[in-house]
Design a binder for these strands. Structure first.
Lengths: 245, 245
DNA sequence: CTCCTCTTTTCCGTATGGTGGAAACCAAGT
DNA sequence: ACTTGGTTTCCACCATACGGAAAAGAGGAG
């Protein structure tokens, strides 16, 4: 843990905080509050302005927070929103399907779980949250691959004898057509899963919600039924985070 | 207009943008993308973390945007929200009262107008938006003084023979009791106004909405009626920006 | 359990980027 | 037209931020 000592970055952040508090400020006032020279304050404001984090008010020499801050915050809260808004839906889905439900987002070429609700009959205490999973061997991953939220990996590693290691056999087009994906003992023997796409406000797929359980309960015959349930659940999560189509 | 040349601030902002785009990143990846040394990236992240704009993800060495960005954005959008959300209400109030309606926020010891809707019978083409007005001589200003959104100025300047220049005679307690304020030819001869307080999500008064017009139309006898209308309008604006009490 | 690989984190000498100061420029008020 | 106070520009200097080396840590393979 560092002590945060980059003087001009510290000062720039202090300027942002002052502007958040005051609404708008003049160069002179900011300089006085920061105890720096007016030319220093002016230069720091220039850098923040160039980066979109501040902008000039109508009248000369007065600054306020810029829309760049709102854009950054939008990105910061998007995943907070997703985890928060999806929780209630995951709880219901876990009860309805009877298995563990997860929400995964694309990150560094992997599917990373950000939310989990354990199924009522869950045997395993396994917590998937924070864990990255191989996209080609998980139902969530296949969804993210199919809908363009993840790029196809160069190598598809084998985890079980049933793992698909040929990209052409992943069936991504069929997943797009059907609207949900599944795996049958491809990540772990005895583990099946079904996932559906979660869309953001612009319609792009930003996450996947999945149900997973032992193959003797989540049988291949049961996949279509569970697929429809997850698709409806995914749609509801999408609406909760701002997708209205 | 400066060229934004503060290298470490520029780099810090670039880090924020990368994190907004990627969701989370490692030190090594940020360094590569910024084309700086890993120790440089690490130090900049430390400064941003100290300022609350980034935080570490669960796993070691991975960073994401922090809640400080959301707090800054909250401040940035609050006034955008106010101007946007109040517009529809101001339009209706202007029609209902028949006079020009303004919304003012406290800034640097003044009441500053951020939104205006001209009344149907407005004679003057005067645009108040962006203009700061003396708090003690305007109805909006008196509201902001009464409810603690503005401090009492040291000197109360006289604008007309009717301007109140003794702070004790402003009647701030009565304004709090009654819930609205008025001026009668205190800023300009022949100009009267009525204002009511707009509250933010935490209940604090963050703005005032006012109706102003010529004293032969906005007569003293008409002030109570208009006061009630403005109070209802202010409550509606408050609810639109998140006040639910 | 050991070793390897890669990343994170720390430390430090150096040079360059950021500083304060002086001054030019600008806007508002009298 | 002049004054006042703030904004903005320019520049020499030095203190801070840099990159590099290395220590520490984590994860994976054998």
């Amino acid at each position: 843990m560092s002590n945060g000592s980059v003087q001009s970055v510290d000062r720039a952040i202090a300027i942002l905080e002052i502007l958040a508090r005051e609404g708008a400020s003049r160069v002179t006032d900011l300089a006085a509050e920061l105890d720096v020279h007016k030319s220093t304050a002016f230069r720091l404001l220039g850098a923040l302005e160039q980066g979109g984090l501040v902008e000039q008010s109508g009248d000369r020499g007065r600054y306020r927070l810029g829309f760049g801050v709102v854009r950054l915050a939008g990105a910061a809260t998007a995943q907070l929103d997703l985890a928060k808004e999806s929780r209630a839906v995951c709880l219901r889905l876990a009860g309805e399907v009877g298995e563990t439900v997860n929400v995964a987002v694309p990150q560094d070429g992997h599917a990373v779980n950000v939310s989990q609700v354990r199924g009522p009959s869950a045997i395993s205490g396994h917590n998937w949250v924070g864990q990255r999973t191989p996209a080609h061997a998980t139902s969530s991953g296949k969804v993210l691959l199919a809908f363009g939220a993840l790029p196809l990996p160069e190598a598809l590693d084998r985890f079980t004898p049933l793992t698909i290691t040929d990209a052409r056999l992943l069936g991504l087009e069929e997943i797009r057509r059907r609207g949900w994906a599944f795996t049958v003992e491809e990540l772990e023997l005895g583990l099946n899963a079904v996932a559906a796409p979660v869309r953001g406000s612009d319609g792009a797929v930003v996450a996947a919600v999945s149900a997973s359980g032992p193959s003797y309960r989540l049988t291949p015959q049961r996949l279509p039924e569970v697929g429809e349930i997850m698709t409806a659940g995914a749609r509801e999560i999408s609406q909760r985070i701002g997708y209205y189509r």
